[in-house]
Design a protein around this nucleic acid. Sequence first.
DNA 1: TACCGCTTGTGAACGTGTGCACAAAGTCAG
DNA 2: CTGACTTTGTGCACACGTTCACAAGCGGTA
Lengths: 266, 266
Amino acid sequence: MAAQRGQRNGVGVTPPAPTAAEITTPIPRVTEVPAARERARAIPEAAVARLAVYLRVLSGMQEHGAGTVSSEELAVAAGVNSAKLRKDLSYIGSYGTRGVGYEVAVLIEEIERILGLTRKHSVAVVGIGNLGHALANYGGFPGRGFPVTALFDVDPDLVGVPVGGMPVEHIDDIPRVCAEREVSIGVIATPPPAAQAVCDRLVSAGVQCILNFAPVVLQVPDHVEVRKVDLAVELQVLSFHVARRADNAAVLAEANGRAVDGMVVS
Amino acid sequence: MAAQRGQRNGVGVTPPAPTAAEITTPIPRVTEVPAARERARAIPEAAVARLAVYLRVLSGMQEHGAGTVSSEELAVAAGVNSAKLRKDLSYIGSYGTRGVGYEVAVLIEEIERILGLTRKHSVAVVGIGNLGHALANYGGFPGRGFPVTALFDVDPDLVGVPVGGMPVEHIDDIPRVCAEREVSIGVIATPPPAAQAVCDRLVSAGVQCILNFAPVVLQVPDHVEVRKVDLAVELQVLSFHVARRADNAAVLAEANGRAVDGMVVS
DNA sequence: TACCGCTTGTGAACGTGTGCACAAAGTCAG
DNA sequence: CTGACTTTGTGCACACGTTCACAAGCGGTA
């Protein structure tokens, strides 16, 4: 969940709070919004993540010259249940033809529209260590539409050095550079102790979406979206499964050959 | 999941299948297992991921000399609701003292036990490109207990070259090396087209847990656990939120100052 | 045109996870 | 020892996401 599954700042969960002043300007409470594109809000987060997967699979299919797909085909390729897939697609509208399937090109277009991939999203990477280096070199970042337009680090020896064809800037320049280059997504790849400070700078520079690789729980204002990629957590979840498997095997072995019962070690 | 989060192989969702022959040997169906440590199975995946986060926070607290924590303190530090935290902890047992809180040391020990961190888990990294390089240099991998004991690549120029103090092996040697070094977790950091083949080799080498960085849906047997870290998906989810935000702002602006209605750009 | 088979889209049941609120249980002061 | 205060552990209700199952709708065929 990911996984994942994204961090929400979670702290301000005080429900009796009226949560006034939502986006930027003091808006006098708009509860019943026109709902034309408000539909977007209704898409569950998990479904959004899957839509991104469908999009990738569809792109592959298009390159192989496929004109249409059935929900079943697409579901198998994406590794999900076909009913779930259809429900996910229904969140963005009805673009299929009953008895036939979906037109690949149409689906790609609609998913890209919903995911906001029609606009380019400038990405800034902060922290040019091992991981930041790798991210900067990732070839303009995975897939379409996420050009890396700024790199930052605190190390003066790194500042000015080109990495992946782009000079590293000092983190003190985050506000200026992010504003100039209209950065909309910040990637934090710093050591843990620096992460919160960097995050604060990005936020005050107007960045509203952050991808955090540092193993730290970031505190951000409500209007900022944070997603977390935590290698340690991923490994530990896998470790849990290893342990569970081993334990189950032991229990099962005990349950079958029940002669030895002094064997169960704590 | 993302969260996210973890990929389940999802394809074999045929519910009428009896799912016979579970783990390794032909076991005659054990439904009601002793349930002593079967409790482990009952822990929701999302809770496991959070336990890993709690563990990190607790370690930090212990270094700062904290002896006990209340659920509220720990919850704030971990960025979750305190009720959720208590429920998560209750999955692993009752180790708190009412009126006082939890002993940090005890909690750390119990979480480590549940997550299986008392054993060492050898990690193999396959694909020594940008990302694989970064992972190999990550300093024995994040935190405790996950030593990287093998590196693999298909490029003959890389084989034998030491990366992070460890020579790269050829992927043809995956079965032998993984068996020798008792690798329990495989990390796939290859280009997408190679991922499935590498995965198959790891699985046939006996690796049961895989962390996949390649943007591909891996097909694995039921007994293998896969977790996926997909940068493209993460970015696209963030992109979705950028778009949603922009749309909402536009709608709100329209709803408020309803004089200008030609301003809403698609 | 009428029928048939196929696939979508979705209402409804189900299961899981989250959040609330409170009893149970402990500490500490007097 | 008693009583007040604090914090855990959990039953319960709710919300969310997943899965099922089927009616609605479309293309092809006679």
